[in-house]
Write a protein that binds this DNA or RNA. Structure first.
Ligand SMILES: NC(=O)c1ccc[n+]([C@@H]2O[C@H](COP(=O)([O-])OP(=O)(O)OC[C@H]3O[C@@H](n4cnc5c(N)ncnc54)[C@H](O)[C@@H]3O)[C@@H](O)[C@H]2O)c1
Ligand SMILES: NC(=O)c1ccc[n+]([C@@H]2O[C@H](COP(=O)([O-])OP(=O)(O)OC[C@H]3O[C@@H](n4cnc5c(N)ncnc54)[C@H](O)[C@@H]3O)[C@@H](O)[C@H]2O)c1
Lengths: 219, 219
DNA sequence: GCCGTCTTGTGAAAATCTTCACAAATCAGG
DNA sequence: CCTGATTTGTGAAGATTTTCACAAGACGGC
């Protein structure tokens, strides 16, 4: 079971996640195997892309048959590192933070928010489903005690860089960042940004472009 | 002011949004011009990339000087289609939906959530900051009345496809989708997916990969 | 065992995206 | 006006990603 660890592109990894999601949506009683074509349809890509992506990690399919759903799920979980529990520290118990905390799908995938910190004294001490919100001073201790390597930043942009550095100093190596700011951290730290304004702006551009082909822009 | 509308890649557009964000973070009194190098630093890319991206839409800089902050902001807003107001319909007044509704940055950029619908009768009729939550039956009328071309889907995956179709039938052409499912809509509709589980899994993969270079995987 | 149908895995080709490198332009100082 | 220090805009080169196309394998029916 030695995974060979070739250089894999980010887009491939992101698609693997989509494949896993698609596979979990299948009824593996009714549909025990799946072809690359079907998987592509479910994940929004092409059959060749599916096969190419999977073939980087092994030969999981059978020619003429396709891929067995349950084993492929396990391979994907294995590749993505989901065959373990990932303790996560959440920084910021605001609107986004609370939505994420209550999101059941994270826990189902092994991402367990085991600690929450917030700067607001009014929030510190509250319990969320058994997890007590703690002050930011407790962050380093918390990260170490929980052995958390993943953190979620859900605080205003002004504080994000400092908080990120605190997380990294305490041992965090991966950050999901909701703050609208570019974090500058050591190259061994992986940061994934969630930028919803950007997503809306991409829609805006697409629509504006489509409209303008037909009619002039109204002053 | 005829923008030439060349074929522009998605990644370019997404970077333009980052450039705009970076420019808005600058004090244009203290720093009236910015070089491609500095902008790249702020946006997390390379100077050549910045110049290439911008040059697709015009020559906004001055050689030897750089780009004037305020005018470049306006060019970017113009390109992205942000020189107007975008009414948005929100489907799903749950955890994510309410966080988005209260997110001030959307409105600042022109994305104004003008209507909210939810299936839950207990939520229908409530007022959120002046906007009344309406039943799903009202959706087609609402979309047309508000002339909304953008929609946000913040409901469970099981209902997302049907709701998306309802939005599109009523005139929506761009959707920000939080539901963990691939939407299948006409090719004239633009869908941007937000998949937070995917983002976490990408972090998981990166960390697992980094760890395994040093040590074997514990059974 | 053989045939027809299906589907994977994968090199090669095509397409796309990023980086390089440098001429052309701008400005300050004298 | 000329020099030197900058920085843009951009074709060409390089790198990466996606698509194509097909040989090789798998299975059911007979
Ligand atoms: N609400 C949204 O829909 C949304 C969407 C996209 C991005 N974001 C971004 O996510 C971040 C959080 O947004 P929100 O809407 O949840 O904000 P919020 O104001 O509701 O919550 C922020 C929380 O962080 C806490 N906080 C502030 N500084 C802190 C610090 N230094 N350490 C610890 N806690 C601190 C505050 O006390 C508050 O509880 C912001 O950067 C925002 O731009 C939010
Ligand atoms: N909470 C999170 O942090 C989070 C993170 C990522 C993705 N998501 C996704 O976003 C979506 C919403 O998540 P949430 O946590 O806000 O859920 P939620 O249960 O808090 O809210 C969902 C809301 O949608 C309403 N609803 C259900 N079906 C509807 C329909 N057909 N039409 C209109 N309204 C309907 C419900 O009444 C409820 O108010 C889900 O698909 C979820 O997987 C949530």
């Amino acid at each position: 079971m030695s995974t060979d660890l070739p250089a894999v592109s980010d887009s491939t990894i992101r698609r693997l996640s989509l494949y896993l999601r698609a596979l979990e949506g299948l009824d593996d009683q009714a549909e025990p195997t799946v072809s690359s074509r079907r998987l592509a349809e479910l994940a929004g890509t092409s059959a060749a892309q599916v096969r190419k992506d999977l073939s980087r990690f092994g030969s999981f399919g059978k020619r003429g048959l396709g891929y067995s759903v349950a084993p492929l799920q396990n391979h994907l979980r294995d590749i993505l590192g989901l065959q373990r529990r990932w303790p996560v520290v959440l920084v910021g118990a605001g609107r986004i933070g609370s939505a994420l905390f209550e999101y059941p799908y994270f826990r189902e995938r092994g991402f367990e928010i085991v600690a929450v910190v917030d700067r607001d004294p009014a929030k510190v001490g509250r319990r969320w489903n058994g997890v007590k919100i703690q002050s930011v001073e407790a962050l380093p201790t918390l990260v170490r005690e929980c052995r958390a390597e993943l953190g979620i930043l859900a605080i205003p942009a002004t504080d994000a860089q400092a908080a990120a550095e605190a997380l990294v100093d305490a041992g965090v190596r991966g950050i999901l960042n909701f703050a609208p700011v570019q974090l500058h951290l050591g190259s061994h730290v992986v940061v994934n940004d969630v930028n919803l304004t950007l997503e809306m702006e991409a829609l805006s551009f697409a629509l504006r472009t489509a409209s303008e082909l037909g009619s002039g822009e109204g002053g």
